[in-house]
Amino acid sequence: MDPQAAKFIGAGLACFALIGAGIGIGNIFGNYLSGALRNPSAAPGQFTNLLIGFALAEATGLFGLLIALIILFG
């Protein structure tokens, strides 16, 4: 296989990490929303936790994206 092609395929595969990030972020916001609709008065207090959870979930996906970028350009 052309090494250049393998590199692109590898970068594409590394981007699969973003699937998990997508699921995670969706889960966090979905659960936050359902919780907030059940008990709207408690929702603002959990907003910080929501953002932290969002950042943590997003970070794992970005690690994969980083690997892809490093494969492509590193």
């Binding site: 950042a55 997003e58 970070a59 970005l62 690690f63 994206l65 970028l69």
Partner: peptide, 10 residues
């Protein structure tokens, strides 16, 4: 560090 860097760069 990677979180901040990757977010900004991406």
């Amino acid at each position: 560090s990677v979180r901040l860097f990757a977010n900004m760069m991406a």
